[in-house]
Simulated assay, not measured.
Amino acid sequence: MELDFEVVDLPDADYVTEGEQAPDFTRPLVNDEYWEDASLSDLAADGPVVLVFYPMDGAFPATYIWNELRDRNFDAYDATTVGLSISTPYEHKTLIEEREMSFDLFADPANGVAEQYGIAHDLDGMAGISEPRPAVFVMDEERTVQYAWVAEEWPDFPDYDELEAAIDAL
């Protein structure tokens, strides 16, 4: 099969792994109606969280990831699934509407959260511009990571069956 893009190996990453506490952060959390500052610890206090890092809205990996999670009914699990990218709240609202998503998305234009998690990736060699590499962290109410997947190449996507099994195991 001929691809319209080049698959690129990503450098090793020193990221948060199973058994470690996920770093807390506060960023604008966007839904289909509004956004407000929210912290990961507040979400986790209500139950397990599936934190999905993805490239900017509009990039094909974002569309693919969110279509897959939507079509697999990830909003039906007893865990809160939220996304995080460098896109602004305005771009998030557009993605949520266009993809008909019920998931909330954190806006982190400076990519500081990805840096905390060890998954920041320089964007196409542009100095000072980075985005999170695709990654998924499943955590319990104490923010202890129970499952971690981080892309090793671009593009790369999680094993959704494996992800579902990790959520079921909570």
Rank of each mutant, 00 (worst) to 15 (best):
M1F: 09
E6F: 12
E6A: 11
D9M: 03
D9E: 15
Y15L: 00
T17P: 06
F25M: 02
F25G: 05
F25N: 03
R27A: 05
V30H: 08
N31A: 12
W35P: 04
A38D: 00
S39H: 06
D42G: 05
D46N: 10
D46M: 02
G47Y: 11
G47R: 05
P48A: 12
L51I: 02
L51K: 04
Y54T: 13
P55D: 07
D57W: 09
A59K: 08
I65Q: 04
I65S: 12
N67P: 00
N67F: 06
N67I: 04
E68G: 07
L69F: 13
R70A: 08
F74W: 01
F74C: 10
A76E: 09
T80K: 14
T81R: 08
G83Y: 04
S87V: 07
T94C: 13
I96E: 13
E97I: 12
E98M: 15
R99T: 07
E100M: 14
S102Y: 08
D104I: 05
L105Y: 00
L105D: 05
A110C: 00
G112E: 15
G112W: 01
E115K: 12
Q116E: 15
Q116C: 03
Y117R: 06
Y117F: 11
A120E: 06
H121F: 12
D124T: 14
M126A: 09
G128D: 04
A135S: 15
A135H: 03
F137I: 14
V138A: 14
E141F: 08
E141I: 09
R143A: 11
T144E: 08
Y147Q: 07
E152P: 04
Y160T: 05
E162F: 03
E164R: 00
L170V: 12
L170G: 11
